[in-house]
Simulated assay, not measured.
Amino acid sequence: MINPGIFLGIFVQLALLGTLDAVTGLGPLGWIAGAAYGVAVGGFLTYGLNRSTARSLGPADAVTLGRSGLVGCVTALVVDTAGRETVTMVVIASVALALDAVDGQVARRTGTASPLGARFDMEIDAYLILILSVVVAQSLGPWVLTIGAMRYVFVAASRLWPWLNSPLPPNMARKTVAAVQGIALVAVVSTILPLWAGFAVTLGALGLLTWSFGRDTWWLLERHAFAATPAEVA
Rank of each mutant, 00 (worst) to 15 (best):
A107M: 04
P194G: 03
L97H: 04
D125M: 01
G83N: 01
L203S: 14
V134F: 15
V90R: 07
D216V: 10
A231V: 15
N3C: 05
I129P: 00
M89C: 12
V90S: 06
M150C: 09
A82T: 10
V106A: 06
F154H: 13
L164F: 12
G5C: 04
W211I: 14
A98N: 09
T191N: 15
L29G: 12
P230T: 01
W143T: 05
A40D: 08
L140R: 07
I32L: 15
A227W: 01
L29Y: 14
I131S: 06
G72T: 09
R159I: 12
L209H: 08
G43S: 08
L208P: 09
Q138C: 11
G58W: 11
V87F: 15
T191A: 14
A40Q: 10
L70T: 04
I147D: 00
T75L: 15
A93E: 03
L130C: 09
G43A: 10
T86I: 13
F213C: 02
L185G: 08
T24F: 09
L77T: 07
A62S: 10
G111W: 08
V95E: 07
A126Q: 00
V177Q: 01
T46Y: 13
L45D: 02
L145G: 06
L65H: 03
S212A: 09
A173E: 12
A96F: 03
A200I: 09
V39C: 03
A60E: 01
L140A: 04
L49S: 00
A62I: 15
D21P: 06
S139Q: 15
S158P: 12
A225H: 10
V188Y: 06
M89P: 01
L16H: 07
L221V: 13
I6C: 08
G104W: 02
I147Q: 01
T88W: 11
V186Q: 05
A156M: 06
A54T: 12
T64D: 03
S166C: 09
L208F: 14
A231K: 15
G182T: 02
G204D: 08
Y127W: 15
L14W: 08
L130K: 03
S190T: 03
V87H: 13
V90E: 02
L77K: 02
A178K: 04
